[in-house]
């Protein structure tokens, strides 16, 4: 038990936060913001495996999020599927797609990889925007309510607990993955890819694996998003949204699962807080992004954690 507590300290902190947050919630709008923050956090926890641990960038992850959302919307509405089946189909489809594209493009490095992932995202978003008979075009479409074993999630409160649970599960999965042999191989890969290859690690294999996993995380969150909002339009998988996900990951802290969650929460809450001074919103947002990266290039959580540790040690 103690070992579990030690190993999953972050998970326990997060669980406590999720349990306590509703005390400060006054209405459904607050729940709505928290739910969206939680959904973003699931995407970012997955994306951070790719960026923080495998050292690969993706400027196209919103596309996987969007594909998951559209899979759920189309399959439940047009074809009358059960929402869980639609979600599963979306995750499987996105996984296969990610696998197919990952092999060739993960050979690319740095900005070239950024370009390739960005390109894939743009292509997918154009297809969804154009094939209006299936997707509803620029105005999008809506999804049926989400239900599990006969319980339909309608109230914001029930959604909060659902997303909170899903977020905890995602964090638990990601933590386990990092502490597994795969995680160790990944870290070797981030440090020095050539070195890793020399000592016999099949680097491409691991990169592809982690790319697929992070894409499936995004698809999962996208499905939930589609049922919750419940309107799905091409704007949720644009280039800007992809950038937002990366910003959340880097802002909170690369290679930090808890950092991903913190980054996602802050960057989701911030625009809502700034909404009342909308003329200055982009200026403040831009300044915060620049400031954090200049003064805390490792991101919020790792920098603060380091400071705390230094204080603890005499």
């Amino acid at each position: 038990m103690k070992a579990f507590a030690q190993r999953h300290r972050g998970l326990l902190i997060l669980a406590a936060c999720i349990a306590l947050l509703p005390l400060g919630v006054q209405n459904d709008y607050h729940y709505d913001v928290l739910i969206n923050a939680g959904l973003n956090a699931i995407v970012v926890v997955g994306l951070n495996l790719l960026i923080g641990y495998a050292g690969q960038i993706s400027l196209g992850h919103a596309a996987f999020f969007g594909l998951g959302a559209y899979a759920s919307a189309i399959l439940t509405t047009t074809y009358g599927w059960h929402s869980l089946a639609a979600m599963g189909a979306g995750m499987a489809g996105v996984g296969v797609l990610a696998y197919v594209v990952a092999r060739p493009i993960l050979r690319l490095k740095g900005h070239y990889l950024a370009m390739a992932t960005l390109g894939i995202g743009v292509i997918i978003s154009i297809v969804l925007n154009t094939e209006a008979q299936v997707t509803g075009g620029p105005d999008g479409m809506s999804a049926e309510p989400f239900s599990v074993f006969g319980f339909a999630f309608q109230s914001e409160k029930s959604w909060y607990w659902l997303v909170g649970g899903c977020l905890l599960a995602s964090v638990w999965l990601a933590t386990n993955l990092i502490n597994s042999p795969i995680g160790r191989a990944l870290r070797a890969l981030h440090g020095a890819e050539v070195g890793a290859r020399v000592v016999g690690i099949d680097t491409t294999h691991y990169k592809v694996l982690i790319f697929v996993i992070s894409a499936v995380f995004a698809s999962f969150a996208g499905s939930l998003f589609a049922h919750h909002t419940p309107t799905v339009t091409p704007s949720i998988l644009g280039f800007i949204k992809s950038v937002e996900f990366v910003v959340m990951a880097v802002f909170g802290g690369m290679a930090s699962v808890l950092g991903s969650v913190v980054g996602a929460f802050i960057m989701t809450l911030l625009p809502n807080v700034l909404a009342s001074i909308e003329d200055f919103e982009p200026i403040i947002l831009g300044a915060i992004m620049m400031g954090t990266m200049i003064f805390m290039p490792k991101g919020l959580v790792p920098t603060i954690a380091k400071k705390l540790r230094r204080k603890e040690a005499p």
Partner: peptide, 26 residues
């Protein structure tokens, strides 16, 4: 931020573009 890695620099320049867009708009 000269010693920051590639991703951090990308975020900085994206932040700068959002910041400048806000200024231009204002």
């Amino acid at each position: 931020a000269k010693d920051a890695d590639v991703v951090a620099l990308i975020i900085i320049t994206i932040g700068a573009s959002i910041f400048l867009r806000g200024i231009v708009q204002l």
